[in-house]
């Protein structure tokens, strides 16, 4: 099996603070490998068997190499950095276009394209499905579990109110819906081995795309404004001394059978 995992370097939003004027403080905020992407990669690394190959790629500025280095530390075999000034400012569609071009030109034989559901910075959650659309592949979102056996690839998808177990044809796009609470640390030996692997850099020309298909020029999204959506919550205060009764009540309220 050849897995190709998409990752992104993002600012660590959990380390961001809002200053007295309500502005986000970006100074000193570290860049990290997006937790959704890291989880997706780790699930694949856990799934693979000897002989499989796991490649990772990211599109971003030259500094994004450090997140690929982390992927190599964690156990990825190969890494590609798609980087070019012309790609700066890409919206989700222009990103998907660049990513699809990369897959077709540089990893056409990948058996599975793997993404995280979204990233913690933009969080639109559109790129994986746009890539699937552009490459005309089947897509499987909100995957919680992936296994490969004699019967081929199988995935469990979590739709919130139901789980769906399905067969995944080779060459599909799969996106993992979760973030592992327990992060992963590689070993010193993994890190030393990873140091022997290099990161392949690819620019716009290497993708075979024109200036007008990528970056700001290739992006049609215009942000008119942003606003906070206020959710209404109902609140009911109940005083219960007996913990068992409290559990029952919570189960009743959320509609779970105890």
């Amino acid at each position: 099996m050849r897995f190709l995992v998409a990752v992104k370097q993002v600012p660590d939003t959990s380390a961001m603070r809002v200053d007295a004027d309500g502005n986000l403080v970006r100074q000193g905020v570290p860049s990290i490998l997006d937790p959704y992407c890291e989880t997706a990669l780790c699930r694949i690394l856990d799934t693979r068997v000897p002989g499989d190959e796991v490649a990772v790629f990211t599109m971003g500025p030259p500094q994004a190499e450090s997140c690929l280095r982390r992927c190599l530390d964690l156990g990825a075999d190969r890494a590609f950095l798609i980087t070019d000034r012309d790609l700066g400012g890409s919206d989700t569609w222009a990103t998907a276009r660049a990513v699809s071009a990369f897959v077709e030109r540089h990893c056409p034989d990948a058996d599975l394209l793997v993404f995280g559901r979204q990233t913690i910075d933009g969080g639109t959650g559109q790129v994986p499905y746009e890539v699937a659309q552009l490459l005309d592949r089947q897509q499987f979102a909100y995957v919680t579990d992936l296994s490969i056996g004699d019967g081929g690839i199988e995935a469990t998808q979590d739709y919130g109110d139901s789980l769906r177990r399905c067969k995944v044809p080779v060459r599909s796009v799969v996106s993992f819906g979760e973030v592992d609470l327990k992060g992963r640390l590689c070993s010193i030996a993994d890190h030393i081995r990873a140091g022997e692997r290099s990161v392949v850099k690819i620019d716009r020309v290497g993708l075979g795309l024109g200036v007008y298909s990528v970056g700001l020029k290739g992006s049609t999204t215009r942000i008119e404004g942003t606003s906070v959506v206020k959710g209404e919550r109902k609140c009911r205060k109940v005083r219960i001394e007996n913990p068992d009764r409290a559990v029952e009540l919570i189960f009743d309220m959320v509609g779970v059978k105890g």
């Binding site: 660590d12 380390a15 570290p30 990290i32 490998l33 280095r69 982390r70 530390d73 992060g183 640390l185 590689c186 070993s187 010193i188 030996a189 993994d190 890190h191 030393i192």
Partner: peptide, 11 residues
């Protein structure tokens, strides 16, 4: 060195 953890990020 296989029995170890290595860290390079703030996290």
């Amino acid at each position: 060195l296989e029995d170890s953890w290595f860290g390079s990020t703030l996290e």
